[in-house]
Measured scan of single mutants.
Amino acid sequence: MRKLSDELLIESYFKATEMNLNRDFIELIENEIKRRSLGHIISV
């Protein structure tokens, strides 16, 4: 996760939620978004 750019991480989050991927996977992405202080972009 740390090698993904912020932009790609956010894009991955939206794609994963759109495709209804595994909730655990989405939570991993959400946690990384929060760690990077980007939660305001997706309202996490």
Rank of each mutant, 00 (worst) to 15 (best):
M1K: 02
M1Q: 02
M1G: 02
M1F: 14
M1A: 04
M1W: 10
M1R: 02
M1Y: 08
M1P: 04
M1C: 12
R2V: 09
R2H: 13
R2K: 12
R2T: 14
R2F: 11
R2N: 09
R2P: 04
R2G: 11
R2E: 14
R2A: 15
K3V: 08
K3S: 14
K3R: 08
K3A: 12
K3N: 15
K3Y: 08
K3D: 15
K3I: 07
K3L: 12
K3G: 14
K3T: 14
K3Q: 14
L4D: 01
L4G: 01
L4P: 01
L4T: 03
L4I: 06
S5F: 03
S5A: 05
S5C: 06
S5M: 03
S5G: 05
S5E: 04
S5D: 05
S5P: 08
S5H: 03
S5V: 04
D6G: 03
D6V: 06
D6A: 05
D6I: 08
D6K: 04
D6R: 04
D6N: 12
D6P: 03
E7W: 13
E7D: 11
E7S: 10
E7R: 12
E7H: 11
E7G: 07
E7I: 10
E7M: 11
L8G: 08
L8T: 10
L8N: 09
L8F: 08
L8I: 10
L8P: 01
L8Q: 15
L8D: 15
L8V: 12
L8K: 14
L8S: 11
L9Y: 01
L9C: 01
L9N: 00
L9E: 00
L9V: 03
L9P: 00
L9M: 02
L9D: 01
L9S: 00
L9A: 01
L9K: 01
I10K: 03
I10M: 07
I10N: 01
I10T: 03
I10E: 02
I10L: 11
I10H: 02
I10A: 03
I10Q: 02
I10D: 01
I10P: 00
I10Y: 03
I10C: 04
E11K: 12
E11T: 09
E11M: 15
E11S: 09
E11R: 14
E11L: 15
E11D: 09
E11G: 06
S12D: 03
S12N: 07
S12C: 14
S12T: 15
S12L: 15
S12K: 09
S12H: 12
Y13T: 00
Y13W: 15
Y13V: 01
Y13N: 00
Y13S: 00
Y13C: 02
Y13L: 04
Y13D: 00
Y13I: 02
Y13R: 01
F14P: 00
F14I: 11
F14Y: 13
F14G: 03
F14H: 08
F14L: 10
F14N: 06
F14W: 13
F14A: 05
F14V: 08
F14K: 11
F14S: 04
K15V: 09
K15N: 09
K15R: 15
K15Q: 09
K15M: 12
K15A: 10
K15E: 06
K15F: 13
A16V: 05
A16P: 01
A16F: 08
A16R: 06
A16H: 05
A16Q: 04
A16T: 03
T17F: 14
T17W: 15
T17N: 09
T17P: 03
T17C: 10
T17K: 15
T17M: 15
T17R: 15
T17A: 10
T17E: 06
T17Y: 13
T17S: 09
T17Q: 14
T17D: 04
E18K: 10
E18Y: 09
E18I: 10
E18N: 09
E18M: 11
E18H: 12
E18Q: 13
E18G: 10
E18W: 09
E18D: 07
E18C: 14
M19L: 13
M19C: 09
M19E: 08
M19D: 07
M19W: 05
M19I: 05
M19Q: 09
M19S: 07
M19G: 07
M19F: 07
N20P: 05
N20R: 09
N20K: 10
N20D: 08
N20S: 09
N20L: 08
N20T: 05
N20I: 05
N20F: 08
N20G: 14
L21T: 06
L21Q: 07
L21C: 11
L21V: 09
L21A: 12
L21F: 11
L21W: 12
N22V: 06
N22W: 08
N22P: 14
N22G: 12
N22A: 14
N22I: 06
N22H: 11
N22R: 11
N22D: 13
R23T: 07
R23Q: 09
R23F: 07
R23A: 10
R23G: 07
R23N: 07
R23W: 09
R23L: 08
R23M: 08
R23Y: 08
R23K: 11
R23D: 06
D24N: 10
D24V: 09
D24A: 13
D24P: 07
D24I: 11
D24R: 10
D24K: 10
D24F: 09
D24Q: 11
D24H: 09
D24S: 12
D24T: 12
F25R: 04
F25A: 06
F25Y: 14
F25K: 05
F25D: 06
F25H: 06
F25E: 07
F25M: 11
F25P: 01
F25I: 11
I26V: 08
I26P: 00
I26H: 02
I26M: 06
I26D: 01
I26K: 03
I26Q: 03
I26C: 02
I26W: 04
I26R: 04
I26N: 01
E27H: 10
E27A: 12
E27D: 10
E27Y: 09
E27M: 14
E27R: 12
E27W: 10
E27G: 07
E27T: 12
L28A: 12
L28S: 06
L28R: 05
L28Q: 09
L28K: 06
L28W: 04
L28Y: 04
L28D: 05
L28N: 05
L28C: 05
I29W: 03
I29G: 00
I29E: 00
I29T: 01
I29L: 13
I29C: 04
I29S: 00
I29N: 00
I29F: 09
I29A: 02
I29R: 00
E30N: 05
E30I: 15
E30G: 06
E30D: 03
E30Q: 08
E30T: 12
E30F: 14
E30L: 15
N31W: 10
N31L: 14
N31H: 10
N31G: 08
N31C: 08
N31K: 11
N31Y: 12
N31E: 12
E32V: 02
E32R: 01
E32I: 02
E32Q: 01
E32G: 01
E32L: 02
I33G: 00
I33M: 13
I33D: 00
I33Q: 00
I33W: 02
I33Y: 01
I33C: 03
I33E: 00
I33F: 05
I33T: 01
I33K: 00
I33V: 05
K34T: 08
K34I: 11
K34Y: 14
K34D: 04
K34A: 08
K34R: 14
K34L: 12
R35V: 04
R35L: 06
R35F: 07
R35M: 05
R35W: 04
R35I: 05
R35Y: 06
R35T: 03
R35K: 05
R36W: 02
R36S: 00
R36M: 01
R36T: 00
S37F: 13
S37K: 14
S37D: 09
S37P: 02
S37A: 11
S37G: 14
S37V: 07
S37E: 09
S37N: 13
L38P: 01
L38H: 02
L38C: 03
L38M: 07
L38R: 02
L38Q: 02
L38E: 01
L38G: 02
G39F: 15
G39E: 11
G39I: 10
G39Q: 12
G39Y: 15
G39A: 11
H40Q: 06
H40C: 08
H40A: 08
H40V: 06
H40E: 06
H40R: 06
H40I: 07
H40F: 12
H40W: 14
H40T: 06
H40K: 06
H40S: 07
H40L: 07
I41V: 11
I41C: 10
I41Y: 11
I41A: 11
I41Q: 07
I41M: 14
I41H: 10
I41S: 06
I41D: 03
I41R: 10
I41L: 15
I42Q: 03
I42P: 04
I42L: 10
I42Y: 02
I42N: 04
I42G: 04
I42H: 04
I42E: 03
I42C: 05
I42A: 04
I42T: 05
S43W: 06
S43T: 14
S43Q: 13
S43D: 12
S43M: 11
S43I: 13
S43Y: 07
S43H: 13
S43A: 13
S43L: 12
V44Q: 14
V44T: 13
V44S: 14
V44A: 14
V44I: 12
V44F: 13
V44Y: 09
V44D: 13
V44G: 13
